[in-house]
Structures are given as structure tokens and as C-alpha cells.
Amino acid sequence: MENKWTCRRCGVPLEKKKVVFEYLNNSMSHELLRCPRCGAVLIPAELAEGKMADAETLLEDK
């Protein structure tokens, strides 16, 4: 996702950064847009409904 987003609270553009996800006692990391000041992470629809949904299904099926 191209970085055209700004953090509403801090008023600064988001930056790409590696963040860690957790689900059902498993964790994995992915590079995402994140506010460099407050740390808020943006999860776009493509990711939530794509890779994340796939990973959720995999972990749920375990």
C-alpha cells in the first residue's frame, strides 16, 4: 500500500515498519504502515481479507 496516509492524532505521515501479529498463541511479523510518533498501525483491507485471513484460517485449523 502506497503511503498516502497520515496519523490523525499526530498529524505525521505513516512509515513502513515491521510489526508483530499475534493470534492463538502464535506470532508472525509483517511490514506495515505505522505512525512513527504514537505507534498506531494501519491494517488495509487487502491485508486483512487476504494474507491475514489466510493465516488466521491456518492457525484456526491447527
Binding site: G39, A48, E49, M52
Partner: peptide, 11 residues
């Protein structure tokens, strides 16, 4: 949209 994973705050 929604998801079930949670972001662990880091750094």
C-alpha cells in the same frame, strides 16, 4: 472489514 489477529505493540 475485520480481522482476528492482533498487533503486538513493539518499539
Amino acid at each position: 472489514y475485520s480481522h482476528r489477529m492482533h498487533v503486538r505493540e513493539e518499539g
